[in-house]
Design a binder for these strands. Structure first.
Lengths: 170, 170
DNA sequence: CAGTGATTGTGTGGTATCAAACTGTCTGGG
DNA sequence: CCCAGACAGTTTGATACCACACAATCACTG
């Protein structure tokens, strides 16, 4: 990582780390890139609204787009375990960004819906997300952006199926 | 997420979640894909060596390729904070997979080196990583694999520079 | 219509991560 | 030579996440 700010620092020379096999792995760069992208988004979002966590954005958007969605369906769409969602939903309900409504036909499930405040919070985070997305697409350019998007969608879809097949009961 | 196993389940119809703006974001699919890729790798590695954590692989490889690397340089190459590394290095030292050696010319730093046991552990995890990488590249095909690799490398490099510039002291 | 197995959401325990504060060490300017 | 500031590593506090286990509810079968 060439994270060298041109200051009067101890070693002026860049470290030049050897990556070995790691440097040829798609999976490694996927992880590195995702981490950097998330950090950049947190920075974007954090600068405008310090009390809105970046992780809320996907949840608020998915509920807004799918009023009445259940927590399990939401967790699957978001790619996180359902138990991870409980404290997030708790917090968003406490802040009155969403409501949990019992479903008549299925009394196990909650139907989630955004409140007006939740809609506003979603829009604020959406703005940060759009800035972030624009940054990424500016870096890559139009053609490469669409290409990367296509490849990620393809790979995620295939991996979802592969992992689902991993748990067939005999 | 079409995580529908063809069982006699409650709702035979797929849930069909609406993603809204989220479905157009590179950053969202980057996160989803990275999560799935990591889960698939953990599964690969876990099936062979239950007592070797998947997260050790990058650390062992980077030390193996750069004998005498310091923890800070390692953390930067790995894209994680240096404080995250302390417990990992502790554990790997306790298991005698690596040695911490004080540097004569700089008594703040440790020089990290793999032991023979560490080299062996690295090779075991490397096998799992190679299987995982092969899976990904099989899914994508040769052309798309190289394309995705190129795009991720490009994006990570650009984001690294962008984030580094974010902290210039005035 | 009773029972088995699946589901929905929650709780618990453990891991991983970052940010900030802290200790010890080093560098370079005065 | 000394000291302000940078740097290496650790500690602490907080968040996020998963796997597993659990209670309540539901669906399907016999």
């Amino acid at each position: 990582m060439e994270t060298q700010h041109a200051e009067r620092t101890e070693h002026a020379a860049p470290p030049m780390v050897e990556f070995g096999e790691l440097g040829d792995f798609i999976a490694f760069y996927l992880r590195i890139t995702q981490t950097l992208s998330f950090q950049a988004f947190v920075k974007q979002a954090g600068e405008t609204e310090r009390n809105l966590r970046a992780g809320y954005f996907a949840v608020l958007t998915l509920i807004g787009e799918n009023p009445g969605i259940t927590q399990t369906a939401l967790s699957r769409a978001n790619g996180r375990d359902k138990s991870s969602l409980t404290p997030v939903i708790d917090e968003l309900e406490r802040r009155e960004f969403l409501t949990r409504r019992r479903v008549e036909t299925n009394r196990r499930a909650y139907a989630l819906e955004l409140t007006p405040a939740g809609e506003r919070a979603r829009r604020v985070l959406l703005k940060a997300a759009l800035r972030h997305e624009k940054n990424l697409r500016t870096i890559l350019g139009k053609t490469d952006s669409e290409e990367l998007f296509r490849l990620l969608k393809l790979l995620s879809s295939a991996l979802t199926k592969k992992l689902a097949n991993g748990h067939p009961q005999p």
